[in-house]
Deep mutational scan, measured.
Amino acid sequence: ATNIVGKVKWYNSTKNFGFIEQDNGGKDVFVHKSAVDAAGLHSLEEGQDVIFDLEEKQGKAYAVNLRIK
């Protein structure tokens, strides 16, 4: 899925991951530091509006192509 809109539920910059809540009511999506770095960001803030693509690997969904809304 592409261009999914959501809000950062939480992001832990020490542990380098967090979760994004989808605006469409879907399951929360894992986001890793690598996606944050690829977006040219240092971190994510709770409540921040983002747009992302959804990829699945080994049955787990995660956010890629992250951008600030």
Results as ranks from 00 to 15, higher is better:
Val8Met: 03
Lys69Val: 04
Gly40Tyr: 09
Val50Gln: 00
Ala1Val: 13
Lys15Ala: 13
Trp10Arg: 05
Trp10Gln: 03
Asn3Glu: 10
Asp49Thr: 12
Val64Cys: 04
Ile20Lys: 00
Val29Cys: 04
Asn3Trp: 04
Gln22Ile: 08
Val36Trp: 03
Thr14Arg: 13
Lys7Phe: 09
Val31Leu: 11
Asp53Asn: 13
Val64Lys: 13
Lys69Gln: 04
Gly59Asp: 12
Ala1Met: 08
Trp10Asp: 02
Val31Tyr: 05
Phe52Cys: 03
Lys27Asn: 07
Gln48Ser: 09
Phe30Ala: 02
Leu66Thr: 01
Glu56His: 14
Asp49Pro: 11
Ile4Leu: 09
His42Lys: 12
Val31Ser: 01
Ile68Cys: 05
Lys57Glu: 07
His32Asp: 05
Lys7Ser: 06
Gln48Trp: 12
Lys9Met: 04
Tyr62His: 07
Leu44Asn: 01
Asp49Ala: 15
Trp10Phe: 15
Lys33Met: 05
Lys9Gln: 03
Ile20Leu: 15
Gly6Lys: 01
Phe52Leu: 03
Lys57Arg: 12
Phe30Ser: 02
Asn3Val: 04
Lys60Met: 13
Gly18Asn: 01
Lys27Gln: 08
Asn16Ala: 15
Phe17His: 11
Glu55Thr: 12
Ser34Leu: 15
Ala38Phe: 08
Ser13Tyr: 07
Glu56Ile: 08
Tyr11Asn: 01
Gly6Cys: 01
Phe30Cys: 03
Gln22Cys: 04
Val8Pro: 01
Ile20Asn: 00
Asp23Pro: 12
Gln58Asp: 11
Phe52Gln: 00
His32Tyr: 07
Ala1Asp: 12
Ala38Met: 12
Ala39Thr: 08
Phe19Leu: 05
Gly18Met: 02
Lys7His: 10
Val8Phe: 03
Ser13Met: 10
Gly40Met: 10
Glu46Trp: 15
Lys69Cys: 05
Asp53Cys: 03
Asn12Lys: 07
Val64Leu: 08
Tyr62Met: 07
Leu66Ala: 01
Gly6Gln: 01
Thr14Trp: 15
Ile20Gln: 00
Asn16Leu: 11
Val29Ala: 07
Leu66Pro: 02
Gln22Lys: 13
Phe17Ala: 02
Val8Asp: 00
Ala38Pro: 03
Lys15Asn: 14
Val50Tyr: 04
Lys69Ser: 04
Ile51Gly: 04
Asn24Tyr: 15
Val31Gln: 00
Glu45Cys: 06
Ala35Thr: 11
His32Phe: 05
Gln58Tyr: 15
His32Thr: 04
Asn12Arg: 09
Tyr62Arg: 13
Glu45Ala: 15
Ser13Lys: 10
Val29Asp: 01
Lys33His: 10
Asp49Tyr: 10
Trp10Ser: 05
Trp10Asn: 03
Gln58His: 07
Asp49Val: 14
Phe52Asn: 00
Leu66Phe: 02
Val36Asp: 01
Val31Pro: 00
Gln22Arg: 09
Gly47Asn: 15
Gln48Val: 09
Ala61Gln: 07
Lys15Glu: 05
Thr14Val: 14
Phe17Ser: 03
Asp49Ser: 08
Val64Trp: 07
Gly18Cys: 02
Ala61Gly: 15
Lys33Ala: 13
Ser34Thr: 13
Gly6Asp: 00
Phe17Arg: 02
Lys33Thr: 05
Lys27Leu: 13
Asn65Tyr: 08
Gln22Asn: 14
Glu45Arg: 08
Thr14Ile: 14
Asn12Trp: 14
Lys57Ala: 13
Arg67Thr: 13
His42Gly: 10
Asp37Phe: 15
Trp10Leu: 05
Asn16Pro: 02
Ala39Met: 07
Asp23Tyr: 12
Ala63Gly: 08
Lys60His: 13
Phe30Ile: 04
Ala63Lys: 00
Asn65Pro: 00
Tyr11Thr: 02
Leu66Arg: 00
Asn65Ile: 02
Leu54Met: 13
Ile20Thr: 01
Gly59Leu: 08
Glu46Tyr: 13
Asn65Ala: 07
Gly59Ala: 15
Lys27Tyr: 15
Trp10Val: 05
Ile51Ser: 07
Ser13His: 07
Ala61Thr: 11
His42Gln: 13
Lys7Glu: 03
Asn16His: 09
Asn16Trp: 13
Phe19Tyr: 08
Arg67Tyr: 12
Gln22His: 13
Ala38Glu: 11
Glu56Asp: 13
Thr2Val: 15
Leu44Arg: 01
Tyr62Cys: 04
Lys69Glu: 13
Asp37Arg: 12
His42Arg: 09
Gly6Ala: 04
Asp37Thr: 12
Tyr62Pro: 01
Lys9Trp: 02
Ala39Gln: 05
Asn24Pro: 11
Gly47Glu: 06
Asp23Ile: 13
Ala38Leu: 12
Lys60Asn: 10
Val50Trp: 02
Ile4Pro: 02
Val8Lys: 00
Lys60Leu: 10
His32Cys: 03
His32Asn: 06
Val36His: 02
Val5Leu: 11
Glu56Pro: 05
His32Ser: 07
His32Gln: 03
Thr2His: 08
Leu44Pro: 03
Ile68Glu: 10
Glu46Asp: 07
Glu56Arg: 10
Gly26His: 14
Gln48Asn: 06
Val31Thr: 04
Phe19Cys: 03
Ala35Tyr: 06
Tyr62Gln: 15
Ala1Glu: 14
Asn3Gln: 12
Lys15Phe: 07
Ile51Lys: 08
Phe19Asp: 00
Val31Glu: 00
Leu54Asn: 06
Lys60Thr: 09
Thr2Met: 09
Gln58Met: 11
Ala63Thr: 03
Leu41Glu: 10
Ile51Asn: 15
Thr14Met: 09
Asp37Trp: 13
Gly47Cys: 04
Tyr62Phe: 13
Lys33Pro: 02
Lys9His: 04
Asn24Val: 15
Phe19Pro: 00
Ala35Cys: 04
Ser13Leu: 09
Gly47Ser: 13
Phe19Ala: 02
Asp53Ile: 03
Ile4Ala: 09
Leu54Gln: 09
Lys7Thr: 06
Val29Thr: 13
Val8Ser: 01
Phe19Glu: 02
Lys9Phe: 02
Asp23Val: 11
Val36Arg: 02
Ala35Ile: 08
Phe30Arg: 02
Val5Cys: 04
Thr2Cys: 04
Gln58Phe: 08
Lys60Trp: 11
Lys27Cys: 04
Ile4Cys: 04
Gly6Arg: 01
Lys9Cys: 03
His42Glu: 11
Gln48Gly: 06
His42Met: 12
Gly40Phe: 07
Lys57Asn: 15
Glu46Asn: 08
Phe19Gly: 01
Thr14Leu: 12
Asn3Thr: 05
Lys60Phe: 10
Ala35His: 08
Asn3Ile: 03
Phe52Pro: 00
Glu46Ser: 12
Gly59Lys: 13
Ala63Trp: 00
Ala61His: 12
Gly18Val: 01
Glu45Met: 13
Asn3Cys: 05
Ala63Pro: 01
Ala39Arg: 03
Asp49His: 11
Asn3Phe: 06
Gly59Glu: 07
Val29Arg: 06
Gln22Val: 07
Gly59Asn: 15
Phe52Tyr: 07
Asn3Lys: 06
Asn3Gly: 15
Gly40Asp: 14
Asn24Ala: 15
Arg67Phe: 15
Phe19Arg: 02
Asn12Ala: 12
Lys7Pro: 02
Ile68Val: 15
Leu41Phe: 15
Gly26Gln: 07
Gly40Lys: 12
Asn24Asp: 07
Ala35Trp: 04
Val50Thr: 05
Asn12His: 14
Lys60Gly: 08
Asn12Gln: 14
Val31Trp: 02
His32Val: 03
Gly26Asn: 14
Tyr62Ser: 11
